[in-house]
Amino acid sequence: MSRKVLITGGTGLIGTRLAEMLIDAGYEVALLSRHPSTSRYRGFRWDPQAGVIDEAAVTYADYIINLAGSSVSDGKWTNERKREILSSRLAGTKLIAREMAKGHHHVQAFISASAIGIYGDQDDRVVNEQTPPASNDFLAEVCQQWEGAAHSVAEGGIRTAIFRIGIVLSPEGGALVPLARVVKMMAGAPLGSGRQYMSWIHLDDLCRLFIQALEEPTWEGTYNAVSPAPVTNQEFTKTLAEVLHRPLVLPKVPEFGLKLVMGEMSEIVLASQRVSADRVLHQGFKFEYPELKPALESFYNED
């Protein structure tokens, strides 16, 4: 049985780990990238902004996992940066959809990333997949358009699952790295009010979620990719300090200070998102790291 997976955005934090786990599970993996020769996997070239893609890419795949998109946490959100954040997601997804609409392929499922940013700041209200997207919110707007582009694949009759990803925990990148650095320097403190909710997921659980959705035909539609135990920012910081055996020394890092340093991007850490994992649990997914402390200990054990 052919088990070939094509990953867009495969050189990023999630794609790198996902490719390793797919290989371990007996899949063949190829990456779609602008510079395919730099990877140890088979590569196909594409340039989403130019609308160019190797014609052999989609016909190679039994499954496509779409992770392409420039990082929301690299640099301040200037107007140019915002355009890049949006277009890097839209252009790639639309290009894949256009290519698949031509037919002549054997893709059985399309798994696409989105983010819990679609809900905006929800204070302590629990949100689920039925909660309407936030209005007047940059990330929510990006996610809506991104999901819209993925839905066009579903309209072509391909089984499509969209994952709204929470804060991905990994010591290799993402939000955890700067947070852990600050705590290790003995300067750890809750951010903003500290009461805002953080809906997180361990990188390995996220990858296992993608693999299960790829393998089981009942996965279709939109899912929150978050652990079942969201925590407040204060709890998160406190648990991280415990795991790193460091004291929490500072009072809260004030909101205006974060806004000064990060600009609009501060909403990534200041927005409160208490996101339900019920739908993935009902699908039968079992988290290896449902609770925060063991998730963090898996990275910093004996550190």
Rank of each mutant, 00 (worst) to 15 (best):
T78G: 03
T78L: 05
E80F: 00
E84H: 08
I85C: 03
I85V: 10
L86D: 05
L86F: 07
S87P: 02
R89M: 04
L90F: 03
L90D: 10
A91T: 10
T93P: 11
K94D: 15
L95S: 03
L95P: 11
I96G: 10
I96E: 14
E99W: 03
M100H: 08
M100E: 11
K102M: 02
G103P: 08
H104W: 05
H105F: 00
V107A: 06
A109D: 11
A109I: 01
A109M: 03
S112W: 02
A115K: 11
G117T: 03
I118A: 08
Y119H: 13
Y119C: 07
D121P: 05
Q122I: 00
Q122S: 06
D124V: 00
V126Y: 09
V126T: 13
V127H: 12
E129T: 02
Q130L: 08
Q130H: 09
Q130S: 11
P132W: 11
P133L: 02
A134C: 07
A134D: 12
S135W: 04
N136E: 15
D137L: 00
F138H: 15
F138Y: 15
L139C: 08
E141S: 09
Q144N: 09
Q145D: 12
W146L: 10
E147W: 00
E147A: 01
G148R: 15
G148Y: 05
A149V: 01
A150D: 13
S152V: 08
V153F: 13
G156M: 14
G156I: 02
G156Y: 09
G156C: 09
G157C: 03
I158Y: 04
R159T: 01
T160Y: 04
T160A: 02
I162K: 07
R164Q: 13
I165Q: 14
G166R: 13
G166K: 14
G166P: 04
V168W: 10
V168S: 05
L169Y: 09
L169T: 10
L169W: 04
S170Y: 07
P171I: 00
P171H: 07
L176A: 02
V177A: 08
R181H: 10
R181T: 06
V182L: 15
V182Y: 08
V182I: 14
V183E: 15
K184N: 10
M185S: 13
M186P: 01
G188F: 01
A189G: 14
P190V: 01
L191T: 05
G192I: 00
G192Y: 06
G192V: 02
G192W: 11
S193I: 00
G194N: 05
Q196M: 06
Y197R: 13
M198V: 12
W200D: 12
I201M: 11
D204I: 01
D205M: 08
D205I: 00
L209C: 06
F210L: 12
F210N: 11
Q212R: 15
L214T: 12
E215I: 00
E215G: 01
E215M: 05
E215A: 09
E215H: 03
P217W: 05
